[in-house]
Simulated scan of single mutants.
Amino acid sequence: MRRRLLVTALACAPAFAQEPPESPRPRQKVSAAQIYEALSRRFPVKRGLGGLLELVVSAPGLLLLPARNKIGASLRVEASGPALRTPQVGDLDLVFALRYEASDQTLRAYEPEVLDLRLPGTPPESAQAIRALLPRITRDLGEFVLHQFTPRELALPDTMGFKPDRVTVLEDGLEVSFAPKGS
């Protein structure tokens, strides 16, 4: 009987010797709906090229790209003007990197990058003129606020000694992980 008790105790010893798991860190979730609303406020965007071409970029659709840890927008591009025989319509996909800005407690999208521009039926010279305007449009989008944390949202993590740290893109929104204030 004692031998069985000793064998059982020795078998369980490694489980007791393990360090306790690290205490869970606070996390905050920002829903896809909140992100979409912030993104929608940035559009429509209108840009022209010397009176020859005008682009209107509108109707964003939200893209969540967890594999790249980025968010994006699927946009409608409408091009018109004397440089085109007929108005052209296409689709533009942009992605943005994400960061937390401590000075105003916001989540921000920045570094817009063009993923794809689809202009079916557009003559090559017209498509080239439209592509020439894209860097200007993405530069004009710049950095913008996706979410501003309220003092209430940050109160508990703050009293626990944590600050927002890493932003992770999920299938249904964003997750902000917190880290100890000293790190």
Rank of each mutant, 00 (worst) to 15 (best):
P157D: 12
V145Q: 08
L65H: 14
P120I: 08
T168V: 11
P82W: 01
L64H: 04
L62T: 12
D93W: 05
D158F: 13
R99F: 08
P135Y: 13
K70F: 13
L98W: 07
D140G: 10
G81M: 01
E111H: 14
G61D: 14
L98H: 03
G72D: 05
L62D: 05
R76M: 01
D91Y: 12
A79C: 04
R139F: 13
V167W: 01
L64N: 03
Q148H: 04
E101H: 06
F162L: 02
F162N: 09
T106A: 14
G81I: 02
P60N: 10
T86V: 14
L94Q: 02
P151S: 11
G72I: 09
T86S: 12
P157A: 14
N69Y: 06
L84F: 06
R166E: 12
R99V: 04
L133N: 04
D158R: 12
P82L: 11
P87H: 01
V145Y: 06
Q88F: 03
S74R: 10
D158A: 11
L84P: 02
R118Q: 11
Q128D: 12
L98I: 02
A102L: 08
L119M: 13
A129E: 12
D104W: 13
M160G: 03
A155C: 04
P135Q: 14
L84W: 02
L75P: 01
V57Q: 01
T86I: 09
L63N: 10
V95E: 08
